[in-house]
């Protein structure tokens, strides 16, 4: 179940990056650390809010759900089940679609890059690809989990 461990680690990193951006949006952080120079432009743009909720908060919620599902999938009850991986693939697919849209906005509409947004985009894309690969090779992954026994 290495892929669920990888997903949990990446989701936790993504959670803190999103949390940082969300707290900044709430005015609780100091100046935004940004080497690309465009983070504030992106974060202050009209596109930084989606359905009335800051995009960064969507990130916090998204990475939290990925973290919860991946940790649940590592428990004895679920470790040999395909369901958690399917759920991770579905959730991360939604995430990939969302960050794809946001990255398009940065490139074509806002004309500025936010490094933290790109980090989140990269993380969710890796999670999605990992889930896909795991689903395609599921019999081998399951057999490996059975050999290792309960954790």
């Amino acid at each position: 179940m290495t892929h669920r461990m990888v997903t949990a680690v990446l989701a936790l990193i993504g959670f803190f990056v999103s949390l940082y951006l969300w707290l900044w949006k709430l005015g609780l952080m100091g100046p935004l650390v940004c080497t690309t120079g465009g983070c504030e432009t992106v974060q202050l743009s009209e596109y930084a809010v989606f359905f009335g909720v800051p995009v960064a908060l969507w990130g916090v919620l998204g990475f939290t759900s990925l973290l919860v599902v991946s940790l649940a999938g590592l428990q004895n009850r679920w470790v040999e089940q395909r369901g958690p991986t399917v759920l991770l693939a579905v959730l991360s697919a939604i995430g990939v679609g969302f960050v794809g849209y946001l990255t398009y906005l940065e490139a074509a509409v806002i004309h500025a890059w936010c490094q933290w947004c790109l980090v989140c985009a990269g993380l969710v894309t890796i999670i999605f690809l990992t889930s896909l690969v795991t689903l395609r090779t599921w019999p081998a992954v399951r057999a490996q989990a059975q050999r290792r026994g309960p954790s």
Binding site: V9, L12, I13, F15, F16, L19, Y20, L23, W24, G27, L28, M29, G30, P31, V33
Partner: peptide
């Protein structure tokens, strides 16, 4: 990761 994350966010919030 959680410890580093909490420390980083806390440090950043101190500079507000």
């Amino acid at each position: 990761i959680a410890v580093v994350g909490v420390a980083a966010v806390w440090t950043a919030s101190r500079s507000a």
